[in-house]
Design a protein around this nucleic acid. Structure first.
Lengths: 346, 346
DNA sequence: ATCGACTCATAAAACGTTTCACCGCAGGCC
DNA sequence: GGCCTGCGGTGAAACGTTTTATGAGTCGAT
């Protein structure tokens, strides 16, 4: 006995309590009514043997999966970590086990993870895709409840939860304009990510007579040379606006290494508020995404789907909060100096 | 037939390919040799039906679990996130699925998570306990391969991977002494956590004639009032040394809110290097823990246990790196001023 | 021609659980 | 006493897979 896995089986418990296996199951799951005396005997046997259920058999037999998969592009990104952490709490509250995996920003790994998760027969999936295009390279099988969060796949066949990227970016750009900025370099990892694309378009739509220029710097460059070049010398823009977590961090670090002061030498704004942005001086103007709300919204949508709702795909947009801080100061005094320097633009 | 979970069963594939279920299994797992013609037919059928294995049945039947559980106190702590992320990569490399859960710094939740994970019959567990005492309130059952990381349970019955806490803290304290500090307030969440305890003891052992004082501030206080009181007014210590991630962040934020400059008004050092510590001015002196190495070490120890090794528990200590930066400056010039202010201490 | 050895495929058993059909039995009612 | 109605328990089937014992067939050597 003892079997492959450790631990006693339900049959052993049944034998010890002098009842049948079905009765033990009924006691443990409360599905059918059991006489108090028997129930007590069973509980004692469970306690004595240290029995605990084998979910593999349990979930196999009862088609009820009570398992949900979560895939994020990168667990070390604090935003995604918060997302997962919130989901975990919600899942637990509703009696679901969560399988959390990170795709490490690699579409190939994403699809591989999806394959493996699927083999556990989850009741639903919440995915933050690492690439807009690859979100629909989902394994073919039967459609499974699926919520796509944060980043929008190219084909809108799924339930969707995201933030109001364009509006948030527009707010930042408008602010820069009001502060007197004349030109701004907008930086992001890649326009292949829907977030970055939407933010860039939102920024452009609100540019007014602020000159905008976009630069894609990719993921793994800590000090992107292309960016460094743009910040060096006479052509340096008055403002720098970073469209995602990675870029914001990399650019701010680069500014420091180049001896440029955020706010003083270059106005600086970014996405994805993190604690340090309030700790530095001057503090950094950022867009704060409502991660917890996004997680909660994703979970409730997924629950509805797992409950059997088969309506058409829904999309929800959550509003971001922009906090203006010292890193995007009024450009009055410095503008003349800057204008002098950037004669090439005139 | 579709059954409870979605997707076709292995029997359907077998029927379609005109073979038996066992043969399909053999083709898919390569355990026994199958004639090339049959193998091809089976693969075609698999492809056409979109078959994929049901791990619940698979792992149930073959006792092989190929599943490992990971429990950390808090996924939003970047150190633990990095730990998990590394583990995930290693697990995948070795063909293991990982179940990752966070205990949210709550021992009760930790034990509840452990219970639930256990029901999936994992082959092993890697735990960063949220509390030294509660690590051995493990569910009773049969002993399972288990590696405890980062924090040391009170009873050393398990394999253990941790860092050289005492030595790292001692290095920081020695540095403070050399810089001319006379008194230092040491802050940590709780001495119930072995890390904090070891660091505090290491600090004390290296104090020399530097006066040390310890303050426990708990977890959820963003601006711990007790700490604020100690930093206000005449009794303010010359140096502040924070013994863990949470405290370092909270204390640094508090300094800012109080208008005190780290380095200028109070020498400041902390544990758990994070990116912003290099971004602020002056940069923060910190102890960097080798998280990735800790994860790799945990995994290799667990693999050995899962492979059947039943030797006595082993313990490994990894070395931390201390980076001295501007937040712990030489106190020569300012010491006289400070001494003037802290007349009560003279 | 017979035997042994080897290769492949099959049918059935097993894993641990839940569910389903069934049955004994007590009690109330006619 | 016969009959219906529930209650509370049982044995067996089922979930989808892997494994094991078995057997059918081929080939080469005696």
């Amino acid at each position: 006995m003892g079997g492959g896995g450790a631990g006693p089986s339900i049959r052993l418990v049944a034998e010890r309590a002098g009842v049948s296996a079905g009765t033990v199951s009924n006691v443990l799951n409360g599905k059918a009514s059991v006489a108090p005396a028997i129930s007590a005997r069973v509980r004692v046997a469970v306690e004595q043997l240290g029995y605990f259920r084998d979910n593999r058999a349990s979930r196999l037999r009862s088609g009820d999966s009570r398992l949900a998969g979560v895939i994020v592009p990168d667990l070390t990104n604090p935003m995604f970590a918060a997302f997962v952490s919130t989901l975990e709490q919600l899942g637990r509250r509703d009696g679901y086990d969560l399988v959390v995996v990170s795709a490490r920003n690699d579409p190939a790994e994403e699809v591989e993870r999806l394959r493996r998760i699927r083999e556990w027969r989850p009741a639903g999936l919440i995915v933050i895709p690492c690439d807009g295009a690859l979100a629909e390279r989902l394994p073919g099988g039967p459609p499974m409840p699926l919520v796509v969060a944060d980043r929008i796949p190219d084909a809108p066949r799924f339930d969707l939860v995201a933030v109001d990227n364009a509006e948030a970016a527009a707010a930042v750009v408008r602010h820069l304009g009001v502060q007197g900025c004349e030109d701004c370099l907008v930086v992001g990892t890649s326009l292949a990510i829907s977030n970055v694309r939407e933010r860039w378009e939102g920024a452009r739509s609100a540019a007014g007579n602020l000159r905008l220029d976009f630069l894609a710097v990719g993921f793994d460059d800590h000090a992107p040379p292309a960016l460094e070049e743009r910040l060096r010398g006479a052509g340096r823009p008055q403002a720098l606006f970073c469209l995602d977590h990675e870029t914001t961090l990399a650019a701010y670090r680069l500014l420091g290494e180049m001896g440029l002061g955020a706010g003083a030498d270059v106005a600086f704004a970014g996405f994805d508020e993190m604690e340090w942005m309030r700790l530095v001086a001057p503090a950094v103007t950022t867009v704060r995404q409502p991660v917890e709300a996004m997680a909660a919204c994703s979970w409730s949508m997924l629950r509805r789907r797992m409950g059997g709702d088969a309506g058409p795909p829904q999309a929800r947009r959550l509003r971001c909060a922009v906090t203006f801080r010292g890193s995007t100061p009024r450009q009055t005094a410095s503008r003349s100096r800057e204008a002098d320097r950037t004669t090439q633009g005139g």
